[in-house]
Amino acid sequence: MISEQAKQRMRELAAHYPVARSAVMPALYIAQQEEGYITEAALEAVAEAIGMTVDDVESVATFYTMYYQQPPGKKVIKVCTSISCYLRNCDALVDRFEQRLGIERGETTADGNYTLMTAECLASCGTAPVIQVNDEFVENVTLEMADELVSEWERELSADVGTQFIAPSSDQEISAPRAQ
């Protein structure tokens, strides 16, 4: 369910832009923050707030890779595999994460803890190889660091057991629009 507060923020965004449908992308982010991914309820709420059809909203949501079509893991790990990271051996890093997490790139662990993805150039080529964990950068990643990171996440997630699902996006806030 999308909260009334989230819907209100969507409506405010729609009023903020010169044309309401420009708010569809930020509104999708708000919905994803609540649901964890783009659910049917998310599409409906955005469509209603912006004044678009559900299909139209879905056509936008499926174009952009950052709107998840399936529930992602609590830790979404993106390993950059573009040319500069390739030259700095990102492929071995992907292999290591696959090994340690027991999944292949593009998959989510059965317990819902991890999603491993490869990503196109993340604009951090000077500190390659680079990964993002829930949108935050970890730079100059070595195989040893990869091992340490996995251990750290294991500790963090086992301490979290029983707590509520936390949306994976790092967008703490998509700020409310300013009154014009």
């Binding site: 449908r21 982010y29 952009y64 890779t65």
Partner: peptide, 29 residues
């Protein structure tokens, strides 16, 4: 002057100026 920050959502093509405008208008890029 009003200034609005608009966040993309993962699409290299939106760096192309006309695709960027499509995206800003709330469409596929």
């Amino acid at each position: 002057l009003e200034v609005i920050m608009h966040r993309g959502a993962g699409a290299y093509i939106c760096g192309e100026e006309s695709a960027l405008m499509e995206s800003l208008e709330g469409r596929r890029g």
